[in-house]
C-alpha cells in the first residue's frame, strides 16, 4: 500500500505516474533520452545495466527488476547472469571500460563527491569518452531519484521476478514515452 491514495493499482513508478501525469511526462522523457536514444555510443543494454546496478545498490526492488529485465533482454543474459553482474560488477564479464563506468556509477550512488579523479582517469584510459562519462553519472544520478521516488512513497511491486522478465521485450520495443504505461 502506497503512503498516499493513488486511486489506481499499478505497481511501482507506474502508479505514481498515473497519479501525477504532469511529472510523469518529463520523467519518462528523461528515461527515454538517457536509456533508449540510439544516438549513444553506450548500448541500450549497457545503459540499462548501469540503471540496474544503481537500483540494486539503492535496494529498490521494483526498479532493479524492471531495468534488470530490460538489461537482460538487450544483452541476452539470464536473470542469474544479471544478478551476478550487479552483485560483483568488477568480476563480471564486462569490458574494462564498462567496469570503470560501473565503479563511477557506484560512487555516484553514494554521493557525487565520492567520484574520484582516479576513477575518471581510469575510465578515460579504458576508452570512455566525455559523453559516456556524462551519461554514466547522469543515469546513476537519475536512478538515485527514481529509486527514492518509488520507495519514498511506499509503492508496491510484484514479487514474482518473471513478471518483469516477461514484460521486458514489449517494454523494450515501445520505449518509455510512446506507450501507454498504464496497461
Amino acid at each position: 500500500m502506497a503512503y498516499i491514495e493513488l486511486s489506481n493499482d499499478f505497481p511501482g513508478i507506474r502508479g505514481l505516474m498515473a497519479y501525477r501525469p504532469e511529472t510523469a511526462h518529463p520523467l519518462n522523457a528523461l528515461a527515454e533520452v538517457l536509456l533508449r536514444d540510439d544516438d549513444n555510443t553506450l548500448s541500450r543494454g549497457e545503459r540499462e545495466l548501469i540503471a540496474t546496478y544503481v537500483s540494486y545498490l539503492n535496494d529498490c526492488f521494483f526498479c532493479q527488476n524492471v531495468h534488470g529485465a530490460l538489461a537482460g533482454h538487450y544483452l541476452q543474459c539470464s536473470l542469474q547472469e544479471i544478478d551476478d553482474m550487479k552483485m560483483d560488477a568488477q568480476g563480471a564479464p564486462l569490458s574494462d571500460k564498462m567496469k570503470a563506468l560501473m565503479a563511477i556509477a557506484a560512487s555516484v550512488q553514494r554521493s557525487g563527491k565520492a567520484v574520484t579523479e582516479e576513477q575518471i582517469a581510469a575510465a578515460k584510459a579504458n576508452g570512455a569518452t566525455d559523453r559516456e562519462l556524462h551519461d554514466t553519472v547522469l543515469i546513476a544520478a537519475a536512478f538515485c531519484m527514481f529509486n527514492r521516488y518509488v520507495d519514498g512513497l511506499g509503492t508496491w511491486a510484484p514479487k514474482d521476478r518473471n513478471f518483469y522478465v516477461n514484460r521486458a521485450p514489449q517494454r523494450a520495443a515501445e520505449g518509455y514515452i510512446a506507450t501507454n504505461l498504464f496497461q
Binding site: S111, V115, M145
Partner: peptide, 10 residues
C-alpha cells in the same frame, strides 16, 4: 538527489 550528484559527480 539527482541534481546534487550530477553537479558534484562531474
Amino acid at each position: 538527489c539527482l541534481y546534487n550528484r550530477y553537479v558534484d559527480g562531474l
